[in-house]
C-alpha cells in the first residue's frame, strides 16, 4: 500500500523550484488504551463542563481565550479574529539558506518527513544529489495547514527529507549556560578516559535496538486476553558503586582489554 502524501509544496530558492509531496516518516507505535468506566467497562465519553455550575457546555456556545494566571485575566478571542491572524496559505516552501550540516543543534529537530517528487523528477533528483554532495542542510520556512513551520531540508541516499524544527522560544540554549568548572583535569585522566572511550568505540547501528517495553505490553495484553495470570514484579533499584575516578578509569581499561583478548582467543 502506497502511503498518502500529507501535503504538497514547492521548494524554492534563487531561480530553483522543485515540487514535492510530504510523507510522514514516523509511525506511531504507541500502544493506545481507551479509558473505561471500571464498573461496567464502558468506554467513557468526554464532556466540557463549566467548573462553577457543573453543567456541560455545548460546542456551539464555547469560546476561546488566552488565560493569564499571573495577571488573573482571561482575554476572549473570537474565531474571526483568530482566522485573521493566520499566516497566508500558499504552496511555497522557502529555502532561506543552506548551512553546513551539524550547525543546527539536536534540540531543534522535531518531526521528520520524506519528500517525494510531485512532477519534475529531474529537478528533484538534481537537488537531492547536489545537496547530498554538498553536505549541507537547507533551512526552510513555510505555511502548512494554516500554521507556520520551520524545517531542515536534507538529502540521504538520493532522497530528500524535511525535519521540522522547533521555534527559538522552545529550545533551551545550552550556550547560555556556564561550563561546569573545577580543578584542572590531569593529563593521565584525560588519556585514560580517551583510551576507555576507544575501547567502547563502534558504529551506530539503529537495527540493534528494539522497543522491548512495547513488546512486553503487547505480551501482557495477549496473556490477559487468554485469561492467563500475570505476576507482578516490584521494580528494583540498583545502586551504582562509587569508585574513585582514577581507579575507575584504570580498572575499566584493564577489564576492556581483558575482554578483547578473550574474544580474540575464542
Amino acid at each position: 500500500m502506497a502511503a498518502r502524501a500529507i501535503w504538497k509544496g514547492n521548494l524554492t530558492f534563487g531561480s530553483v523550484s522543485v515540487p514535492v509531496k510530504f510523507y510522514a516518516a514516523v509511525e506511531d507505535r504507541t500502544v493506545h488504551f481507551r479509558l473505561l468506566h471500571e464498573k461496567d467497562r464502558a468506554p467513557v465519553a468526554r464532556q466540557m463542563v463549566h467548573p462553577g455550575t457543573g453543567e456541560p457546555v455545548p460546542r456551539e456556545v464555547m469560546r476561546r481565550g488566552y488565560v493569564d494566571e499571573e495577571r488573573g485575566t482571561v482575554v476572549l478571542l473570537d474565531e474571526r479574529e483568530l482566522e485573521d491572524l493566520e499566516p497566508n496559505a500558499g504552496r511555497e516552501v522557502s529555502v532561506r539558506g543552506f548551512l553546513d550540516a551539524g550547525r543546527i543543534g539536536p534540540a531543534w529537530y522535531d518531526r521528520p518527513y520524506y519528500l517525494g517528487p510531485d512532477g519534475n523528477a529531474r529537478a528533484y533528483r538534481a537537488l537531492a544529489e547536489a545537496l547530498e554532495k554538498s553536505g549541507k542542510e537547507g533551512f526552510c520556512r513555510w505555511t502548512m495547514r494554516r500554521k507556520t513551520y520551520i524545517g531542515a531540508l536534507r538529502a540521504e541516499n538520493g532522497l530528500l527529507e524535511m525535519i521540522t524544527l522547533r521555534f527559538a522560544a522552545e529550545v533551551i540554549d545550552a550556550s547560555r549556560l556556564p561550563r561546569p568548572e573545577g580543578r584542572e583535569l590531569s593529563r593521565q585522566e584525560r588519556d585514560m578516559a580517551r583510551q576507555l572511550v576507544g575501547t567502547l568505540a563502534g558504529d551506530f547501528d539503529p537495527e540493534a535496538y528494539r522497543d522491548e517495553y512495547r513488546e512486553r505490553v503487547l505480551e501482557l495484553i495477549r496473556t490477559k486476553a487468554r485469561g492467563g495470570r500475570v505476576r507482578l514484579k516490584k521494580p528494583e533499584e540498583r545502586k551504582a558503586e562509587v569508585i574513585p575516578l582514577s581507579d575507575a578509569l584504570k580498572q575499566s581499561i584493564q577489564q576492556a582489554e581483558k575482554g578483547k583478548k578473550e574474544k580474540r582467543v575464542a
Partner: peptide, 10 residues
Amino acid sequence: GTPLERRYVC
C-alpha cells in the same frame, strides 16, 4: 469566559 474543565461521562 470561565475556562472549561474536561469530565468523563459513562
